[in-house]
């Protein structure tokens, strides 16, 4: 990061706009949707780090998201641990479980990792549903908030997203990042060059789970409640949708994807299409994907370049 580049200036300008916009009079309505967007963007960044750079496809990031949310909710509510600390521990729990589950399945090639990640949230859903210790079907209520002021919560989510972005940029430029990309491009060749591929994949998975966990914990404290449905389809599919739509394997792709999807989702909340709203949403997403299969980031680059 040598000289100040125009793109950096543009980024800073956009960030300032994002930070100030909901504070303007009459803009408070944007606070909650934008906070959610930032959290989902963080989750998408985490997913993209794993798939876009290490080539590992996960269909179950809702698990890492939800597990950390649960851990953080329980720690802060029942054990009185301060919320920021609980969030970090929660994310670490996610990361730990990821290591445990990932260790055996990462040695394999092909579809097995995909299948494991698909089954994980389903198991977690059924288990939390059945166990009263985890709040059972209705989940855990009264999760203490990080801060009470919703503008501060919003700024926090913006910071979270930015921090994950910086963290993934840092990872990608490190030695680990280079190794990750080599694994993605050609695992055999990477191995031949002396890259310890299972270790690289494991680290990528743990970092990704940690970031997803932070997002999940943030989300649990935002809503004040977390229930088994967090493991369901929506949170599992969204990061994939957002990253691919925005441009997988690019740093900003997931963020752009998250903002586009959430804007689409929110702007479709209009009376005229009440019952068909979700259908229109799905169809529009499908159309965008079929028109720009390489992601919106590619289009943006072409326009600027």
């Amino acid at each position: 990061m040598s000289a100040v580049r125009p793109s950096h200036l543009a980024g800073i300008a956009l960030l300032v706009v994002l930070a100030v916009l909901p504070a303007l009079p009459g803009m408070r309505a944007l606070l909650f949707p934008l906070t959610l967007t930032n959290i989902m963007a963080t989750l998408a960044i985490a997913w993209n780090l794993l798939f876009g750079y290490a080539g590992l496809l996960s269909l179950g990031h809702s698990f890492f998201f939800g597990a950390a949310g649960y851990a953080s909710a329980i720690l802060s509510k029942s054990y009185g641990i301060p919320v920021p600390v609980a969030m970090v521990i929660g994310a670490a729990v996610s990361s730990g479980i990821a290591a445990l589950v990932g260790l055996p399945s990462l040695k394999l090639r092909g579809h097995y990792f995909v299948l494991v990640t698909l089954v994980l949230p389903a198991v977690a859903y059924q288990l939390t549903n059945a166990l009263d210790v985890l709040g059972g079907h209705d989940g855990i209520f009264g999760v203490p908030p990080l801060v009470r002021d919703s503008y501060a919560v919003y700024l926090g989510s913006l910071f979270l997203m930015l921090a994950s972005l910086v963290a993934s940029a840092f990872v990608i430029r490190s030695r680990l990042g280079v190794e990750m990309i080599s694994v993605r491009e050609d695992e055999e060749a990477a191995k031949a060059l002396g890259v310890d591929t299972p270790r690289v994949k494991l680290y990528a998975l743990m970092i990704s789970a940690f970031l997803s966990g932070l997002a999940g914990a943030y989300w649990a404290h935002l809503n004040g409640v977390i229930s088994p449905s967090v493991y369901e389809l929506e949170k599992a599919s969204m990061p994939l949708l957002m990253s691919v739509l925005g441009g997988k394997g690019t740093l900003l792709g997931p963020v752009i994807g998250a903002y586009v999807i959430q804007t689409l989702f929110e702007s479709l909340k209009i009376e005229a299409i009440a019952t068909a709203r979700l259908f229109v949403f799905a169809a529009a997403t499908f159309a965008i994907y079929r028109i720009f299969p390489q992601g919106l980031m590619g289009v943006l680059r072409r326009v600027i370049g």
Binding site: S7, L9, T250, I304, G305
Partner: peptide, 19 residues
């Protein structure tokens, strides 16, 4: 950040885009 890693676009177009 990511835009800077691609082939260098001309500075002028970038400023315009940002604007």
């Amino acid at each position: 950040m990511a835009t800077a890693t691609s082939s260098k676009p001309s500075r002028k177009t970038l400023y315009i885009a940002v604007g």
